[in-house]
Structures are given as C-alpha cells and as structure tokens.
Amino acid sequence: MVGAGASSLVLEVENLAASRGLRILFEGLTFRLSGGEVLELRGPNGSGKSTLLRILAGLTRAHEGTVAFKTAGEDEPGRHYLGHLDAVKPSESAAEQAEFWARYFGRDPAEAVKAMKRVGLSGREQVPGRGLSAGQKRRLALVRLLVEPRPVWLLDEPTAALDIEGRALVTQLVAEHRAGGGMVIAAIHGDGFAGSRTLDISTLSIGAVA
C-alpha cells in the first residue's frame, strides 16, 4: 500500500525546539520513529502539538534542531499533512473536490470514487462543501490520504468532529497504514490507537507501546 522503501523508513528528530512568537513551546526534543510505528502526540491545548506537526510537514520553521525523514532510496519519503482545517471549498461539490485531489497527485479520478466510498461519503457526492457537516468535511479531508499512498501521515486531531463510526474508520485506516510499513504521527485527545507510542509534548516524555 505504501510502496517500496517504506520498510526502511525512519524519522530522526534531534534537539528540536519550537517557538510561537517570543514563546518557546518546547526545546530539546529528540526521538526516532520507524516505518510501521504510530506516535501519538499528547498534551494540553497550546503545548505545541500542532506546531510540531507543522514543523514535520515542512510548513513551519523549527526554532532550532533538525528533522530528517530517511528511506533506503535517495528521495525524501512523501508526506501527507492533515491540519485541523479541512481544506474544503464551499462552492465545489464533494465529488469535484475528491477528484481534484486525485488529479492533483497525478492519479486516476477513479481513485477518488473509491476513496469517497471508503470514507463513507457515498450518496453525498453532489453536495457542495458548504452543505457538508463538520464531520463530513473531515471525511472529505481523509480522501487525500487514500487517493495518493504516501509513507508518512501527519494528522492533527484526525478524529475531531467525527462520529463513532468515523473514529473507527480513522483507527482502521491508521492500522492498515502501519501494517503496510507506513508511519503515522497524530496529535490526539481521548482514545488513541492500539499499539502506538506516545509523546507527551509538555513533558517531552516518550511512552512505550501502549
């Protein structure tokens, strides 16, 4: 599912510090994560979970320290970043948006149809983005993960706004992804993913497999 080279996938974070304005959120963060592992980011609101994910996604610059994703090949492994905003356009229909992301990643638009079915948006294809509920928008954002297989998933509260069935879907997607050798780093409150490691961002303590 994830493609060649994923088995040797490694993330090395060294002495990482993040700041927001003049405030240091965390410093001295060092950890290593391999393909097939899931890391849950825990901590109170404002402790730097989203900022860490944005740094890993390459959106925000680190205050200091280094982040290195490595695979057996030369290229950096592909990453998906799902922020707390769903990137849903109000005037486009759900199907149009799913197909857009398939084309964006150079995939067959048929992938979008499959992905829409998988995230439980069948029957809602023609609804414009503004007509979707918060949970449905989140499901539409998950389509991005499915149309283009990429080894690294960076998820910011992926289950926010989702119903019980939706949470089960995310849990299952994450389990399938790690079974295929992929890596998942997710900021999360409440129930986590079975067999994942946890990083408490406020104390920088890394927990063993839960």
């Binding site: 996604a57 592909g78 998906h80 990137a87 990643f105």
Partner: peptide, 13 residues
C-alpha cells in the same frame, strides 16, 4: 489560507 488549502498544498511537497 483561511480554509487550510494552502497548508494542504504546501504539506504535500
């Protein structure tokens, strides 16, 4: 920028 589309573009490399 407001709806997160730019993040999605930038985060996909």
């Amino acid at each position: 920028l407001e709806d997160g589309t730019l993040d999605a573009y930038a985060g996909s490399g």
